[in-house]
């Protein structure tokens, strides 16, 4: 019990951030037209690629061969998520742009 309370105390700022971010996420997304569901999902998909930052940190402090290999893999996969996600989203949105020009 004490451990849990202490954990909350030490991480109070993080918990604040989490709670505010949850509301922010809900707020930002509401009222999105159905047409944009797919690109929005894809864009959000790219943003959680921020896990790449964690992968870089692990890899940056890896020493054993196994950790090096896994870390390398984590960075590659994280980058795939980021780059693939943003490029695909851009490709989808490009289509929307094109048709708006012709309007």
């Amino acid at each position: 019990m004490e451990g849990a309370l202490e954990f909350i105390y030490i991480n109070r700022e993080m918990i604040f951030i989490v709670i505010l971010s949850i509301f922010l996420g809900v707020e930002v997304i509401s009222n999105v037209p159905a047409v944009l569901h797919t690109p929005l999902m894809s864009g959000a998909n790219a943003i959680h690629g921020v896990v790449l930052v964690g992968a870089i940190i692990v890899m940056g402090h890896a020493e054993a061969t196994l950790t090096m290999v896994l870390g390398f893999l984590a960075v590659v996969l994280g980058t795939l998520n980021v780059v693939g996600g943003f490029v695909v989203t851009d490709r989808m949105l490009e289509m929307f742009k094109k048709k708006q020009k012709k309007k």
Partner: peptide
């Protein structure tokens, strides 16, 4: 980044 996608993704 993570929480934002987590909550926005759930709403979506």
């Amino acid at each position: 980044g993570g929480i934002l996608v987590g909550s926005a993704g759930t709403i979506l």
